[in-house]
Amino acid sequence: MAKSIEAKNLNVYYGKFLAVSNVNFTVAPNSVTAFIGPSGCGKSTVLRTINRMHEVIAGATVQGKVLLDGEDIYDDGIDPVAVRRTIGMVFQRPNPFPTMSIYDNVAAGLKLQSGRTRKADLDGVVEKSLRSANLWAEVKDRLSKPGAGLSGGQQQRLCIARAIAVQPDVLLMDEPCSALDPISTMAIEDLIRQLKKDYTIVIVTHNMQQAARISERTAFFNLSATGQPGELVEMGETPKMFTTPTDKRTEDYISGAFG
């Protein structure tokens, strides 16, 4: 289940351009870690290296290591597809498959993994995942309706249900609430607190209050100037990061001096 993540000397390139340089951090299992920082500082890029999703973009490469419970996911023998099956991801914009029903959306990952699953088992997992995503009560009577017909907040919870249906070790969230209203955001934040029991969660957020509310540890990313690579400035316990950060840049960002 929930695993630890460790990044070692991580450099991320888009073609020849060094987008993020020399990132090192560790994330404990069953914790919530927030990545904050100004736009373009590479926090989403780093997040996407954790499940090798950045490779989807042509020309993107990585140097360094990302260890999942000690195992390097960039090792030669490792299949990125297998990595993504154990590290789930939730995106900025809710992206349920528009051609699938609510049920099929949740079952999508499961069907990939196990080929033919017995219908009864599948029903069970779908229900459990939707319950875990606090969505079951709202959709249980319309599981065969299109997932795209739900509200934005419901769609995002549907995407979370889809991600956790395959029981990943880690859940990555790339600004999951930035397209949502405050009520839906609250629902997602509650959910994140519950999911911590079972998963290691890393969340990118632009909302510092959100980071303060839900995360145990916070990592602040920054870039010294446009065209320069982003870097991890500082990482620490969230309360400390928001009250007495070590680095001046963190303090400036937190206090609203820039960003």
């Binding site: 099956r85 789930g88 528009p98 051609t99």
Partner: peptide, 27 residues
């Protein structure tokens, strides 16, 4: 095919062909 749907399929751990079956062809 919306980029988000392609990424959603890939992030679930689909191979390229599975992604096409899951996102591109239905769309």
């Amino acid at each position: 095919t919306p980029r988000e749907n392609i990424e959603a399929a890939l992030a679930l751990g689909s191979t390229k062909w599975e992604m096409i079956r899951m996102a591109v062809l239905p769309y």
